[in-house]
Design a protein around this nucleic acid. Structure first.
Lengths: 118, 118
DNA sequence: TATAGTGGTTACTAAAAGTATACTAGTTGC
DNA sequence: GCAACTAGTATACTTTTAGTAACCACTATA
């Protein structure tokens, strides 16, 4: 890896390779970092949850917010939406296998937050 | 606060305990999840970087953005600001030991993003 | 003297995020 | 019938965030 230091006197300080990494971090954050998105995912880890129950779990996030985030997560393939009853409409949201691959990151984030009293 | 759990047969479905977890995730995200924050931290992992260099590394994030995020990160103890030269003003930002504890999460996020072509 | 670099600040605008309320349409229970 | 529940949608609104551009004081170079 080329360092930003001492190749010669006129070395540019910008290391282009280093610019590749942040994009990955930023892109990942766009998927997991929105408000409530990580929390929603986290709440689904123990099995499907219904819409209103999920809203309550999130401590009063508005329906609009929960709805928007769920749609984003669904579009990105992290959660699924299933109508479990038609007449008295009932819908269950579940985490996909792909969604589960992100739980490891969230687990670490949770531990980090916990350990550092954030 | 009255609990919603099992006082009798008409137990509500809401599990109050489960509501503790998302807060940890949400709180952690408030620290690492802002736009550019994780990227800034990531860029400092190989050593101190100067203000303008950092701006360029972030691919054109405005000075105002970089400045704001750096101030937040500094206030939260994740990075330090050091004036390394006075006359031709020069400032270096560095990651703290505490900041480094978050790199593990970012590393996983980066891998996850990479592996899933996000 | 002019230009470009350092590390910012300030003022402003545009866009996104979030809140609040009311509404649909159906079901269940009193 | 009336209220309360289900899962949303629609509308209007406020707040927050993001981003642009200009500017400051200073230095260094041509």
């Amino acid at each position: 890896m080329k360092s930003t230091t001492k190749t010669n006197s006129s070395v540019k300080k910008i290391n282009v390779e280093s610019c590749e990494q942040p994009c990955l971090i930023e892109r990942g954050m766009r998927v997991l970092g929105g408000k409530w998105k990580a929390s929603i995912l986290w709440h689904l880890k123990d099995g499907p949850v219904r819409f209103n129950e999920l809203s309550r779990m999130l401590g009063g996030a508005s329906k609009k917010m929960v709805d928007q985030r769920l749609k984003e997560l669904e579009a990105q393939g992290l959660v699924t939406r299933e109508v479990i009853s038609d007449r008295p409409i009932a819908v269950a949201y579940d985490i996909t296998d792909f969604g589960r691959t992100a739980l490891d990151i969230l687990e670490r984030l949770k531990e980090w937050t916990e350990d550092n009293n954030i």
